[in-house]
Design a binder for these strands. Structure first.
Length: 220
DNA sequence: GACCCTTTGAAGCCA
DNA sequence: TGGCTTCAAAGGGTC
C-alpha cells in the first residue's frame, strides 16, 4: 500500500469509473446462479462491475438472470446417457458422490487497483504495441503503473477499495481462502471447487543443479 | 486442456 | 509480525 493512501472518503464520489466498465461484464457470464443478497444492501452506483443490472435487489434470483460477474459456475459438460452403453456404465462411488454434491459457484476475488488499471489500459497497450502476449503487455502495464502519478494511482486504489467493500456486502461469508487450492477442505476432502491454479514459480535463484527456474510441482 | 508467463496488490497461512 | 504463497486478468505459448 502506498503511503499516500487512503484517500479521504469524501473524494470517492468524484471518481469516474474506467472506460468500458459500465457496459460490459468483467467476468464471464455463466449460467444463472445467484446468491441471495442482503436486501438492505446499498450500492454506490459509481461502482462498475457490480452496478446497474448487477445491483442486488430482493433476495433470490435476479430478474435479469444474469449472475454476479464474480461468480463463475464451474463448467459442467452435458452428459447424455442415452445409449445403452452409457446406461450400462456404472460410475465409481466417488464420482457419484461428486455429482450429487451441489455445484458451488466459484466466487472470484475482487480486483485490486493494478488489476483494474490493467483492464482499462490493456487495450491501449495492445493497440500501441500490437502485442498479444499478456506477459509482455503486463510488463508494460507494470512499468506504466509505476509511472502514474499518485493521484492517478489513488483513483484505482479507491475503486479497488469500493470493489472489496461491495464484494464483502455481496458475499459476506466469502473468504479469499475459499479459492485457495490449498484450502483445508481440499486437503482433507479433495473437493476444491474453484479454478485450478498454477503454482508460484520458484524464486529466481541460481541453483547449482542448473535446472531452469520453472514452476514448482508443489501441488498439495 | 491445463498450466506457464508476467505484473501488482489483497489476503491467507505459518513460524 | 513478517515473510511467503495464492489468486485475481489476459492471451499466446508450451506440454
Amino acid at each position: 500500500m502506498p503511503t499516500f493512501y487512503p484517500l479521504s472518503p469524501g473524494g470517492v464520489g468524484q471518481i469516474t469509473p474506467p472506460l468500458g466498465w459500465q457496459s460490459q461484464p468483467v467476468y464471464p457470464i455463466s449460467s444463472g446462479f445467484r446468491q441471495p443478497y442482503p436486501s438492505s444492501l446499498s450500492v454506490d452506483t459509481s461502482m462498475s462491475r457490480f452496478s446497474h443490472h448487477m445491483i442486488p435487489g430482493p433476495p433470490g434470483p435476479h430478474t435479469t438472470g444474469i449472475p454476479h460477474p464474480a461468480i463463475v459456475t464451474p463448467q459442467v459438460k452435458q452428459e447424455h446417457p442415452h445409449t445403452d452403453s452409457d446406461l450400462m456404465h456404472v460410475k465409481p462411488q466417488h464420482e457419484q458422490r461428486k455429482e450429487q454434491e451441489p455445484k458451488r459457484p466459484h466466487i472470484k476475488k475482487p480486483l485490486n487497483a493494478f488489476m483494474l488499471y490493467m483492464k482499462e489500459m490493456r487495450a491501449n497497450v495492445v493497440a500501441e504495441c500490437t502485442l498479444k502476449e499478456s506477459a509482455a503487455i503486463n510488463q508494460i502495464l507494470g512499468r506504466r503503473w509505476h509511472a502514474l502519478s499518485r493521484e492517478e494511482q489513488a483513483k484505482y486504489y479507491e475503486l479497488a477499495r469500493k470493489e472489496r467493500q461491495l464484494h464483502m456486502q455481496l458475499y459476506p461469508g466469502w473468504s479469499a481462502r475459499d479459492n485457495y487450492r490449498t484450502s483445508i477442505s481440499e486437503k482433507i476432502c479433495g473437493n476444491f471447487k474453484g479454478k485450478k491454479k498454477k503454482r508460484k514459480r520458484e524464486k529466481l535463484q541460481e541453483s547449482t543443479s542448473g535446472a531452469a527456474p520453472r514452476m514448482t510441482a508443489a501441488y498439495i
